[in-house]
Simulated scan of single mutants.
Amino acid sequence: MLRWALLLGLSLHPQTLRAQNFICSDLELQHAAEVARDRSANFWSGHPLPGPWYQPCPIEWSGSQRSGQGVTRYRLAEGEVFGWQMTVLGDRNTVLRDVLPHEVDHAVRASLVRRALPRWLDEGCASVAESAPSHAQLRSQLRLSRRRILTSETIDAMSYPTSSTSTQQLYAEGFSLVEYLLLQRPRSDLLRVQQAERPLSQSLPAVYQVELPQLLADWTNWEQSRLRVGTTCDCVGCPWHHPLPQAGPVVSERPVLTVWSASWCGPCLAFQQDLQRHPGFRQTLEKRFRIVMRDIDQQPRESGQSGILSVPVFLADTRRIEGYQGPEWLLRELGLTMTPPTPVHAPPSS
């Protein structure tokens, strides 16, 4: 009886589960961390990391109702990264959607860069891995700020601001400046800036071929213009603003609507179910586009090259739409109007 009681006890209490690069007591979080690791590596370098980490990174998760938070610790010595430790806080959805991808991106770039980075750059790059709603929140916060923290004098700062309000603004400005830099040159150039063994105040002008004060002024003008006009950021997508459909010549072949999804993604499943349940929705899409479904887990290299860091993502023409909020919402984002489904006539009775 004691043996069976022990076996039963083991089955009732979750044990720590170990994967190639992460250790976690929650299997879903562990799998999501592995996926995020490949995705971030592909995004920044164009290919996965060369192999597993020497020691897996333990992940501690504490669920709560407050907004998500995370901390990733590691040690750097003589160009090596070790001593991984990751803590994530928040409800499961927030952790899976934003916190875990953000923290894993820190770890991935630490492996690629192997040196400490100024806080705005490290947090700004990691925020790219978050979801469309998180991007919207960061842009909204920047929209309300009246002064800039990032200047020529603070661009090399290796510590966070002293107040929580200024730290939140640093996240928003860092994300915005990273967006701008990603629009100017390939991601590999921004990775090269991070890898350079000299201050950002020197490496940024050298790689982007513009003096630092002018680069910051151009970024400020771009950000103000984007928030005023509502221009889509094509490098990571914008959940708020999308350009109006462009008028052009009629072509015989329909353009492709590429849908990046995953088997574990709830909104992705909802989209596929809506295609089956609402004939008018499917017919409206197929009249305008040829739909191509892609899976980020089955095609990690291609998804990384396309900058897919969250799902679902819809790519069509010059549009990039993140998330899914129902048929009417997606059609509106694509500039389409739902057409009534074509009736299916029953054959005449004999």
Rank of each mutant, 00 (worst) to 15 (best):
4 W>K: 10
8 L>C: 07
9 G>V: 02
11 S>W: 02
11 S>K: 00
13 H>D: 01
15 Q>T: 03
15 Q>N: 04
16 T>C: 00
19 A>Y: 13
21 N>I: 04
24 C>K: 14
34 E>M: 15
36 A>C: 09
39 R>V: 07
43 F>D: 09
45 S>I: 02
46 G>S: 07
47 H>G: 08
47 H>I: 14
47 H>W: 10
48 P>G: 08
52 P>F: 03
54 Y>A: 11
58 P>F: 12
59 I>H: 06
61 W>R: 03
62 S>N: 10
69 Q>V: 13
69 Q>W: 05
70 G>Q: 15
81 V>I: 13
85 Q>R: 09
89 L>E: 13
92 R>A: 15
97 R>F: 09
97 R>E: 15
99 V>W: 13
103 E>F: 03
104 V>Y: 01
104 V>I: 06
108 V>W: 02
118 P>M: 09
119 R>H: 06
124 G>V: 15
126 A>D: 14
138 L>D: 05
139 R>H: 12
139 R>I: 01
141 Q>R: 04
141 Q>V: 00
143 R>S: 13
145 S>M: 10
145 S>A: 14
148 R>H: 11
154 T>N: 04
156 D>F: 03
159 S>R: 09
160 Y>R: 08
161 P>R: 13
161 P>N: 11
167 T>N: 12
171 Y>P: 00
177 L>N: 04
184 Q>L: 11
186 P>E: 01
189 D>P: 02
201 S>M: 01
201 S>L: 05
202 Q>T: 12
205 P>T: 08
213 P>I: 01
214 Q>E: 10
216 L>I: 00
217 A>W: 05
217 A>F: 07
217 A>V: 06
223 E>T: 10
230 G>I: 01
232 T>P: 03
232 T>K: 01
232 T>M: 10
233 C>D: 09
234 D>E: 08
235 C>R: 08
238 C>Q: 12
239 P>Q: 05
243 P>D: 10
245 P>F: 06
246 Q>W: 06
247 A>D: 02
251 V>I: 09
261 S>F: 06
261 S>L: 07
264 W>E: 07
265 C>G: 10
265 C>T: 12
266 G>L: 14
267 P>R: 09
269 L>V: 11
271 F>D: 14
272 Q>L: 08
273 Q>P: 00
279 P>D: 08
281 F>C: 09
281 F>I: 01
284 T>W: 13
287 K>R: 13
287 K>V: 02
290 R>S: 11
295 D>N: 15
296 I>Y: 04
296 I>K: 06
298 Q>G: 01
298 Q>K: 01
302 E>G: 05
304 G>L: 04
306 S>W: 13
306 S>L: 14
307 G>Q: 05
307 G>L: 04
309 L>K: 15
311 V>S: 06
316 A>F: 04
317 D>R: 15
317 D>E: 14
318 T>N: 12
323 G>D: 08
328 E>K: 08
332 R>T: 15
332 R>L: 12
333 E>A: 14
340 P>H: 05
342 T>I: 09
342 T>R: 03
343 P>Q: 10
344 V>S: 13
